[in-house]
Nucleic acid binder design. Sequence first.
DNA 1: GTCTATAAATTGATAGAC
DNA 2: GTCTATCAATTTATAGAC
Lengths: 212, 212
Amino acid sequence: MAATLCNVSTSRPPRTRRTATGERRAAYDPETLLEVAARVFTERGYDGTSMEHLAIAAGITKSSIYHHVPGKEALLSAALDRALDALFAVCDEPQSTTGAAIDRLEHVIRRSVEILDEELPYVTLLLRVRGNTDTEQDALERRRTFDRFVTKLVAEAAQDGDLAPEIDPGLTTRLVFGMINSITEWYHPGRGVTVHELADAVVAVALRGRQA
Amino acid sequence: MAATLCNVSTSRPPRTRRTATGERRAAYDPETLLEVAARVFTERGYDGTSMEHLAIAAGITKSSIYHHVPGKEALLSAALDRALDALFAVCDEPQSTTGAAIDRLEHVIRRSVEILDEELPYVTLLLRVRGNTDTEQDALERRRTFDRFVTKLVAEAAQDGDLAPEIDPGLTTRLVFGMINSITEWYHPGRGVTVHELADAVVAVALRGRQA
DNA sequence: GTCTATAAATTGATAGAC
DNA sequence: GTCTATCAATTTATAGAC
């Protein structure tokens, strides 16, 4: 079983502490550590990230990290769950389960872009994972489950005649979600395009011809 | 400056050698080592790949690798150049420089998919690189130059009225090439769809509405 | 062109002081 | 909740025999 982050839900509000040089600043908050870890894992790769790298990025020592989490893999697991939980929540939304397939598909596509914006560091990390550890393989399996949900929507929409039938649903899903996922390569929230412009552009390219 | 792979162009045909157990097999060919390295770098990440990992995958010892290349980074550099040289060759093809912008764009898109097929291990590696070393940053800079070439084509085609003008050329390029690049996540040559079906599907999704 | 042996640095993780 | 000090294992790379 995958390791889990300890104390995330029971964390107290941050207090202050003194650094080695006597400088006062906020003591560490497990939430912040998780985001720092997700970012560094994404930049350097999970294997390429040492506890020392994380410690420097977080501004504490290696040993202090072990006070918050049992180890490196627990940080990875918690960060990946964060992205996956958000994506699966979309599948359970009423707009994803009722109405015409093409409308449910558009809703899932738009919400996926929004989650990419809201949970950017965690979604980006999820997309970089290649299955080298048990934790990564568990995450990839959950990703495949999400893909199957979307593929079914594409197939239904094609059967309804609301999508060009000449391309395979699985191939369409891969290309469209490949396009969505590639947004993590360059998107920075609050800089350049907005989330809504982005979602419009994706829907325009992916479902064009169907658009009003 | 980036390190370079030594002896690639002057390599002799493979001979035979004995392993520790006396088994006879082909002696090492620098070309093969480069492909093995690209594949392992892609699977485990460059930082996550040790010389020991490469040695096991190549079937020789760590020390023997140092006979062929000056170090780990030289292998990375040579593999990335292979992908980038192929992409830049496309920019120089006559169909990429003459005719209507929309036709030049379609040609570059189709050829990009073909190069992804022909040089899969090297292109896949190129797309995983994040700029953590000088070698990686040089590669990213060359990738950006290629992107600018394509962005110009998209802008020209939009000005000609051959592409929907409502989306920004830069954004379109990012989304379309994000879609193309995502193919490396699941495509295996000779299994499932063919390169031509793939190129057709990409052009259909990317330039739909303009298609015959 | 391959190997064994080894060097010097870095790795993930622990012990225990404050 | 943080730190210093340390451990055993692994890392990149070299020396030199065959």
